[in-house]
Amino acid sequence: MTEDDARVFKALADSSRRFLLDLLFVRDGRTLTELESELEMTRFGVMKHLKVLEEAGLVVPRKSGREKLHFLNPVPIRLIHDRWIDKYTLQQVSALADLKAELERPMTTTRTVQVNRVYIKASAQTIWDAITKPEWTVKYGYQAPVEYDMRVGGAYRGLASEAMKEQGAPDVIIDGEVLEADPPHKLVQTWRMTYTGEPATTLTYELDEKEGGICCLTVTHDVTDAPQTAAQTGGMLEGHGGGWAEMLSDLKSLLETGKSMYA
C-alpha cells in the first residue's frame, strides 16, 4: 500500500471525518465556522479533522476573499477504487464502491463549484500537453481529440471519438472559449456540452510543480451562473461536473505507467 493510499484509508476510518465529507457533498465550499456548527466538538477538533482530510487530499481549501472555503475532492477515492477494486470481491469492497459512486455523482444545483485535485509524477509541461494536445487526449478518458486556439478569446472544441460517432454523437461534443492561458501553469476556459442544451460553465486547470518530479493538478469546474438558466435547459443542469475524478485518475495512470486504465 502506498503512503497516499494509507492516508486516505486513515482519513476515512473516523466517523467524524466521514461526516465532514458528507456535509461537503451536500453543500461544497463551506467555511470552518459552518462546518463547526454541525459537529459537537471544539473548533480545534474540527480543524484537526480537516487537516487529516486535507493531507489525504479528500478536502481542498480555497481562499475566497478573507474566507477559507473547503471543497470535497473525490479523486483520491477514485484512485483507491481503481487500485484495489480488482483485487477483492465486489462484496468486500462494496462500501468503498458505494462511496466512490456517491462522491462522483453529477453535480446538482446545490454544488456550484467542484474542485478535483490529483498529484502526478510528471512535469507541468507534460501534463499541460496531455490536457491540450489531441495526440494525448485520444489516449485517456473519453479518448476524444481536442482543439485549442491558445490565446484569450480563442476557441476550444472537444471532438467526438469514432466510438461516440457510431453512437450518434455530433462531431463537436464540447465547445468553449479560452479566457486565460499561462502555459504550463494555468488555463481558464468556458465549457459547454453542445448536444444537451446546457449553459456554458467555467473550467480552470492549475498546475503546481512540487519537489521530486511531482506536479499538483487542480481542476475547478464552476457552474455558479448556470442555475440562473436551469429552467431553460429542461433540468439538464445536473449533468455538470460529472466524470472529472475518473478522467484525472486515468490521466495519472497514463502519465505514470504509459497505459490507460482501459487499455
Rank of each mutant, 00 (worst) to 15 (best):
M236K: 07
P183H: 04
E177C: 13
V188Y: 10
H221A: 07
T204V: 11
T224G: 07
T194F: 01
Q232I: 07
M164R: 00
Q189P: 00
V188H: 03
L251Y: 11
D222H: 12
T220I: 11
T202I: 15
T218W: 05
G213M: 08
E180P: 10
G234Q: 12
E166I: 01
M164N: 01
L254E: 15
D171N: 12
L254K: 06
G176V: 11
E162R: 09
V219H: 03
G239M: 10
T190V: 02
P199C: 06
A245M: 11
D225I: 09
Q189D: 02
T218K: 01
Q228T: 09
H240C: 11
L251N: 12
H221P: 03
E177T: 13
E238H: 08
H185P: 07
G197I: 13
H185F: 06
A226R: 15
V172G: 04
E166K: 14
E198P: 00
A200R: 09
G212W: 10
P170S: 01
A163C: 06
Q167W: 00
K210F: 13
D250M: 12
Q232V: 13
L251C: 08
D222C: 12
D250H: 08
D208R: 12
D175N: 15
G241P: 07
Q232R: 13
P183R: 04
T194R: 07
V223Y: 10
T190D: 04
W191H: 11
P184Q: 04
D182N: 05
D208F: 10
L248T: 07
T233H: 11
L187D: 00
G213S: 05
G197R: 15
T204Q: 05
P199Q: 05
W191F: 15
S249N: 03
T202M: 15
K165A: 15
Q232P: 02
M236W: 11
I174M: 09
E177K: 13
T224L: 08
E162M: 07
A163W: 06
